[in-house]
């Protein structure tokens, strides 16, 4: 009874938060309600027992996407471009959103259920996967091609963001100069939290093999620690051409593709993993992916290079 009441309240709050994000006035309000909505969705996933998805939704859906939207809003406000879309624009967005929802709903009911993707098939294949967490087994073994493409999409997003840099700013440090007072509250916080974040991020990746966690969740925690150190003024954001950072950005996809090629040459197919080596290979890919995800997400939030570093004189 209590559980049902909780679920009904949660579902009602979800719909209200979604409505407030879409129908409310003002960009800032929409962003805030989008974050609230993400937190509620994470709760809903946790209620459904999908702890991995809940972790990913809280870290990426609510946390990281929320920060990106807040940063975009701040940029629009700085440049004086924050304008309400007006009734026409909102109507257009409503029709577009409803169209996407309808199309997705139609696809969900119209497409045949794939014959192989059943829980029984997963359970019988799991002993050969090399890891005990079925979600990790699907992401990095049975359907690893999808994950490979995802890791490359992330990189493409960062390159697209860098395309927004002005010509003169290309060689500058990424993002706007940070104004944290040395020895202030943020600087202290930036010293206290990153070690804990490093520990927790690495734990999430390691625990993802047999339990809840994984490269995306761990990478997001690491990215947050990195961002905090940058925002606290303890670590200067890199420039685009820095070798160490470039290597970190591509490490995950490179390790992933290399493992796939080894599979193609030795084990009989691209991304094929024989059970005897599966755990080692998956851990190698996850480690590489975590480093790349952490670097990419952190640099996505920091933003494109800005000329302000010259005139501001903070760096």
């Amino acid at each position: 009874m209590m559980a049902l009441a909780f679920d009904v309240v949660l579902a009602a709050l979800l719909i209200l938060a979604a409505l407030a994000a879409v129908a409310g006035r003002g960009l800032f309000r929409a962003v805030i309600f989008f974050i609230v909505y993400g937190v509620l969705v994470a709760l809903a996933w946790a209620r459904l027992g999908a702890v991995d998805v809940a972790l990913a939704e809280a870290a990426i859906g609510a946390g990281l996407t929320g920060v990106l939207l807040l940063a975009a809003h701040g940029r629009l406000r700085r440049e004086g471009l924050e304008a309400d879309p007006g009734a026409g624009g909102q109507g257009f967005a409503a029709i577009g959103g409803a169209g996407v929802a309808l199309a997705l709903g139609w696809a969900w009911f119209a497409l045949p259920e794939p014959a192989t993707a059943t829980r029984a098939a997963l359970d019988s294949a799991l002993p050969d996967a090399g890891v005990g967490n079925p979600v990790t087994a699907v992401l990095l073994n049975f359907r690893s091609f999808d994950t490979l493409l995802e890791s490359i999409v992330l990189l493409a997003a960062l390159v697209a963001l860098w395309m927004l840099a002005r010509d003169g700013a290309w060689g500058e440090r990424l993002g706007l100069p940070q104004h944290a007072r040395p020895g202030g509250v943020l600087a202290s916080f930036g010293r206290v939290l990153p070690p804990l974040g490093l520990l927790f991020g690495a734990f999430l990746v390691w625990s993802g093999a047999d339990d809840n966690g994984g490269a995306f969740q761990g990478g997001t925690v690491l990215a947050a620690s990195l961002l905090l150190a940058m925002m606290a003024g303890l670590y200067l954001p890199p420039r685009i051409g820095e070798r160490l950072w470039q290597s970190a950005l591509v490490l995950g996809p490179v390790v992933f593709i290399a493992c796939g090629l080894v599979g193609a040459l030795v084990w009989g197919g691209f991304l094929v993993l024989p059970p005897a080596y599966a755990k080692g290979v998956i851990l190698a890919i996850e480690t590489g992916l975590t480093i790349s995800i952490a670097a990419t997400l952190a640099l996505l939030v920091i933003g494109p290079p800005e000329q302000a570093h010259n005139s501001g004189g903070a760096a």
Binding site: V51, D52, G132, S207, N212
Partner: peptide, 8 residues
């Protein structure tokens, strides 16, 4: 779904 906490 594998759960971490209640081992025993």
């Amino acid at each position: 779904m594998a759960r971490a906490i209640p081992k025993k």
